[in-house]
Design a protein around this nucleic acid. Structure first.
Length: 725
DNA sequence: GCCGTCGCATTTTTT
DNA sequence: ATGCGACGGC
């Protein structure tokens, strides 16, 4: 391999990225500008042209999927069958990897486990219950935000200050208790992973030095989505006297994780804090038609922020962007289903290159329903992930408990699953003792079994049975392969029987299926870690690793050759591309989401729309509805402001609403019903539209927006249905 | 201790 | 519409 190959088919800017090795680089890479290709070529360049050791390269991606893609493509390019020693992964897996090695210097226990956001929530719930704080300020969402912000911003929690000082005191009490419980149950959360590594480096210069010396080439992808602590971590790893070279790749227009603490400003900080930085703009888009690109550019220009770059393309106009106005979300889904039938299935065109994107996961439900009805094969990314399923959580809890008896989270989860006669009262006693003597729930149970006075005979018996079961399961794991351990734990714990008993019910059938799938996952994991030296740690490693892998390694045989339409949230679509893209629910309140109706957040929503639009290569369809069911009620929707921000010459509007309106009107008149969005007439106030309906005893109360823009609640008796064209 | 029922609140995005 | 917590009857 020579340098000519590595620069082949690249534009001048791209060539610069691949071959400029004397400077730190800030690459502002627009959507579809060949970013991944360039990254891969650069890594190859470092190895082949500059003779850097693969071990000197650290490549951090945002998701595991991106990491996997990078790994595969590099392997292909390097034509190398050996296991590559380039370190590629997410910040979280990087932190995990190092903390496993340096656990003791980091102040962690040897077998520490990671908790995901679900466990985090449970833990906080338990703390709140214990402290009996009921105020709305102590809602779980708020507490999670507080704790995560606290960690992401290195304890500078300036943005959360409540007027009432008691709140601050309580919040910090909750925080301390949370940290304390994590410590004694030997678990750490996602943010703590990064924070812990940061502190490790900060307090142990000898360790930091090892990695500064090793990682001379640092590449960070999706830099716009890094947070404070990640930025600090990068800064620590960088040592100009060791000649470290950093390449940051990002796109300020695609920053969509502000709610998770991501700071676009990091891009500017990098320019401010680092020497010898060269900024390179990748502005040529190789993905989309110019209609799609123009629409994206126009839309994002409404953010009124100075634009660092502007995408352009050589490709032709292509098809117009369709905007479909649907009656409601069912009509919306049916339109897509019919489109797919007509343009894909009947023509035998594969669906893989086709995606439906939505703002929130709940929107996928109707889609699923309709796709099933029209027999269109689909595949959903995200949503309830495999490892978040109830049955999987249960087996995970058993495995975690037997590898760490002090894992209270897991203990509490499965002490009575399946039912074994240990109810709330027994649990209360166990908790009471644990608090009194500063014991974990497991230790407390042992204590109670010794000092029989705390429980009656029946309860004691049930508890003893449980403790013995766990001991038996624990003894069983010695000297056995991982998948066998898991299989036997599923069977011996009683979980299998619990779901198998009435497997006639569809629900339990899939649950059993998922458990089998979980065993497969363990097998898969065993195979890829075959060269691991220590078998004892395999279970512990497996349990933590899978939490970090949640997003993409869906063990349900994802086969790219299969013919499925892809469905996912806009967030999940980042970094992907499809020939044909639908974005649904283009309505105020949904997209942009109503929680984001302020300037800062609206900008992020707009960037999200930008991300969605730029996923499309050839054809884009946006849909919105007239009415939508929300929280069990039908509401009248208002078209998303983003629709108005698209250039008129790039779009084409489609609606079959007129026909549908007439059809419905007939029904309504027959049933004497009112519906939201219906046009009505009032003797005094004139014409108006129904916004909301409330049912009274004998008639209905209607909220109506009249043509003079006033909104009133009116009893239905005084209203006449008005037939409009 | 278990199970069914009622009423209440809750709907953003994810490593 | 769904899901969770509280409550009461068995």
């Amino acid at each position: 391999m020579n340098n000519i190959d590595l620069l082949k088919n690249l534009n001048n800017k791209q060539k610069e990225v691949v071959s400029e090795i004397r400077k730190n680089l800030l690459i502002l890479a627009g959507a579809g500008s060949g970013k991944t290709l360039v990254l891969i070529r650069r890594i190859a360049w470092l190895i082949h042209k500059e003779h850097c050791s693969p071990k000197s390269i650290l490549a951090v991606t945002f998701t595991n999927k991106a990491a996997l893609e990078l790994k595969i493509r590099i392997k292909l390019l390097l034509n190398n069958n050996k296991k590559s020693s380039i370190w590629i992964g997410t910040f979280h897996s990087f932190a995990y990897y190092l903390l496993r090695i340096h656990y003791s210097e980091a102040g962690l226990s040897k077998n520490f486990q990671i908790i995901d956001s679900y466990d985090q929530k449970n833990l906080i719930k338990r703390i709140l219950k214990k402290m009996s704080l009921k105020d709305k300020i102590y809602s779980i969402e708020n507490i999670i935000k507080y704790i995560n912000n606290f960690k992401n911003n290195l304890f500078n929690n300036n943005n959360i200050i409540y007027k009432n000082n008691l709140h601050n005191i309580n919040l910090s009490k909750i925080y301390d208790e949370y940290q304390n419980l994590c410590k004694i149950t030997e678990v750490i959360d996602f943010n703590e992973l990064i924070l812990c590594l940061y502190k490790l480096f900060l307090n142990n210069h000898n360790i930091l030095k090892i990695y500064q010396k090793r990682f001379k080439n640092i590449l960070i992808d999706e830099f716009q989505d890094t947070n404070d602590i990640q930025y600090k971590l990068i800064s620590l790893l960088y040592n100009k006297y060791y000649n470290t070279k950093i390449v940051l790749v990002g796109d300020d227009d695609q920053s969509i994780y502000g709610w998770r603490g991501a700071k676009i400003e990091n891009i500017n900080y990098f320019l401010r804090d680092f020497d010898n930085v060269k900024t390179i703009l990748l502005e040529q888009n190789y993905r989309s038609t110019s209609n799609i690109l123009n629409a994206a550019n126009k839309l994002i220009s409404y953010n009124n922020i100075e634009r660092k770059k502007k995408l352009w393309t050589n490709s032709n106009n292509g098809k117009l962007i369709s905007i479909y106005y649907a009656l409601n979300e069912f009509d919306e889904a049916e339109y897509i289903a019919k489109y797919i039938k007509k343009n894909f299935l009947k023509k035998n065109i594969k669906l893989n290159n086709c995606a439906i994107l939505y703002r929130n996961n709940a929107q996928s439900r109707i889609l699923e329903e309709i796709m099933l009805k029209f027999s269109i094969p689909y595949q959903i990314y995200g949503g309830i992930r495999f490892f978040e399923r109830y049955e999987i959580k249960n087996i995970l809890a058993y495995l975690r408990l037997i590898s760490n008896l002090n894992d209270d989270n897991s203990f509490e989860r499965i002490i009575n699953v399946p039912k074994r006669g240990i109810g709330l009262n027994t649990l209360k006693i166990i908790k009471f003792i644990s608090e009194k003597f500063f014991l974990t729930l497991w230790q407390s149970s042992i204590y109670i079994l010794k000092n029989k006075k705390y429980l009656n005979k029946k309860s004691l018996n049930s508890l003893r049975k449980f403790v013995n079961l766990i001991k038996k399961l624990k003894n069983n794991i010695i000297e056995k392969p991982l998948s066998i351990i898991i299989e036997e734990t599923i069977k011996n714990s009683g979980l299998w029987d619990m779901y198998n008993k009435n497997c006639l019910s569809e629900n339990n059938f899939t649950k059993i299926d998922n458990l089998k799938e979980f065993i497969n996952a363990a097998n898969y994991f065993m195979n890829i870690s075959l060269n691991n030296k220590k078998k004892n740690n395999l279970l512990i490693d497996f349990l933590s690793r899978i939490l970090l892998l949640t997003d993409d390694i869906d063990f349900k045989k994802k086969n790219n050759n299969c013919n499925f339409i892809q469905m996912m949230t806009l967030h999940a679509s980042k970094g992907l591309e499809f020939s044909k893209v639908f974005i649904i629910g283009m309505e105020e309140g949904i997209f942009p989401n109503k929680i984001s109706f302020n300037e800062k957040n609206i900008n992020e929503e707009r960037r999200l729309a930008y991300v969605g639009i730029t996923r499309a290569k050839k054809k884009l369809t946006l849909t919105y509805t007239k009415n939508r069911y929300l929280y069990g009620k039908e509401i009248h929707s208002i078209p998303s402001r983003f629709l108005n921000e698209l250039p008129k010459n790039c779009i084409k509007k489609i609606s079959h609403l007129k026909n549908k309106n007439i059809f419905i009107k007939k029904n309504i008149l027959k049933d004497k019903k009112y519906f939201i969005g219906q046009n009505i007439y009032h003797k005094i106030f004139g014409k108006g539209i129904i916004l909301n309906i409330e049912i009274l005893k004998n008639n209905k109360k209607l909220q109506i927006k009249f043509n003079n823009k006033t909104i009133k609640w009116i009893i239905s008796d005084y209203i006449q249905v008005c037939i409009l064209k």
